[in-house]
Each structure stands twice: as C-alpha cells, then as structure tokens.
Amino acid sequence: MNTNIWFNQLRVLAHMALTVMGLMLITNTALAERTLLNVSYDPTRELYKEYNPLFIQHWKAKTGETVAIQQSHGGAGKQARAVLDGLEADVVTLALAYDIDQLYNKARLIPENWQSLLPNNSSPYTSTIVFVVRKGNPKQIKDWIDLTKDGVSVVTPNPKTSGGARWNYLAAWSYALKHNNNSEAAAKDFIGKLYKNAAVLDTGARGSTTSFVEREIGDVLITWENEAYLVLNEFGADKYEVVTPSFSILAEPPVAVIDKVVKKNGNQDIASDYLAYLYSKEAQEIIAKNHYRPTDKDIAAKYEKQFPNLELVTIAQLGGWNDAQKKHFADDGVFDQIYDQGK
C-alpha cells in the first residue's frame, strides 16, 4: 500500500543520486590534462574568450601538450579576495594593481616586486575612461565638466565595490585638479557635484552598463573605453555614442602569476608563458580588436585610428594606489565625505 509507493519513490531517488554522482566522477577523471585557472575582472570576458584558444594553440605548437583554461570573472575586489581565501588561481588578470598588491600584503602569494616582473608595469594592455551617451548626445556632454551640470544624470559604479569605478573617480578627480590649479577643495566640490548626479551606484562595471542600456537610466555612462565600444557592438551603434573627454586616466589592468598556487599545481611553465604571450603580436592584435589599448608599438600604430589621442594622467602621478586608496576610498575617505555632507 502507501508505504510501498513511498519506498519505491525513495529507491528511484537513490538511484538517480548514484547515477548523477557517477557522472560527476567520470567528468572529473576526464579532466586529466593540465588546466590553468585565470581569475579576472568583469569586462575582460570577451577578450579572454578570444585569447584562450589562441594560447592553447600556441602552447600545443610549442610543447605538444594540450592544456585547458578555466575562466572566472567578477568584480576585481571580490576576485582578489577569493584568491586570498584559497581560490586556486594560477594567474590573475585584474582591473588595478591595488587588488593584486593585497595578494602580497595579506598572504604573500606573490613576490613583492610582482609588478616589475613583466614589461610595462605588468600591464599587457591599457585602457582609459570615456563616456557613453545616447545617440545624438541630447545633453551635449563633451567633457568631465558637463557631468556636474544640473539635470545631467550620471551612471557609474560604486568605487568602493568596483575597480573600474575607481579609475572613473580618479580620472574625474585629476581633471578637476588640473582645471582648478590643483586646489583639492575645488576638486572635492567637483567630485561631490558629479556623484550627486549619479542616479544609481551599481556594484560593478557590468551592472552600470545594464542600468544605462537595459534600464534606460541616466544620460551618460562613465566606463572603460573597451566596455564603451562593446556597448556599441552589442546594443547598436545607432543608439549610443562614445564621447572621449579632453583628459582622462591611463588605466593599467595588470596581470600576475600566483607563485604559491603554480608551485603547488606544477603549472609554472604554462602560467608564465600564458602571461608572456599576451605581449606577442598575435595576442596584441586580439587585444586591439577588443578595444583595449595595445602596448606593442607596431600593433598600436596599426590600430591608431581606433584610439583617440588624449592627455592621460597616470596612477603614479597621483601617488600610487596605496595613497589613492587610503585618501579616497577607505572608510571616511573623500568619497564617503561626499555623501556625509549634510547628514
């Protein structure tokens, strides 16, 4: 009777459980080839989707070995924290050096001089911060100063949770310093006005793009140059325009091999070649096609038209990430003060 049905159901369930677990085991053993885990930030999804097959081919040609590459994407801070907490990344390719620095500061996963191990501050590609506006640029947004005007609604992620947003913020800050004889008070005022115009503070760059594009929030999106062109490609050049301001920041998203992990996994050779090969002509070509600024001179010259020339401030000129982080983004830093006013 009833209990019988009950037992039958249990038996079927148990059977299903065993089958699925068996399947899991099979798939796990099938992954006997060496795999490399690249832990990256959000906007590089398309770039590494294209670069990984190229590298696999290159490595096969070089050594005869077939490797598999796994990707993990997310906000840079979150990703760095996951690596600190034990996510076994062979390489990290993050949005800013500050987060990679923490891998040394907090857990000694990498050497202190990691940023000098690869050319160009370990940044195989650079980018900058630009604006995306709706077609026809109805609010006539040309430069940073236009973002502080009344009635302009700005979309940018929260610099406390998004790496890209920190570049956005620092670009605006530098612009304000430059146009106000380096007066910090004036720059604070400028930044304050800009963020008062922010309609949403998403937690990541991709979230902001969604708010601007899918939710139709805001008049202007502040974002990576590569992300801006991706918006045109994905959502239509007939709907959006990219506006390059007169002045911005040289964003250097760096890469690093995680020594401790590759030693344990025996992946030193693949990991270091994986990053070194990013500087090759073939890889730089892919980089340029994805609207990251290539560091290779020849490829940069070839794609010159694609990347407008503008004045760029560097993070070093701003005193480096440690200072910038402490001054602007730490609790009660300049960014918090914007919102504390009048509260």
Partner: peptide, 17 residues
C-alpha cells in the same frame, strides 16, 4: 544614506579587505 542596504555595506567592507 538613501537606498543602501546593510548587506551591501557588509559586501563593501569585504571588498575593502
């Protein structure tokens, strides 16, 4: 101060290590 919820603040703190 307007629409920031507690769990978001927790995440923010985590992101700042």
């Amino acid at each position: 101060y307007v629409s920031e919820v507690v769990p978001l603040l927790i995440v923010t703190k985590l992101e700042q290590y």
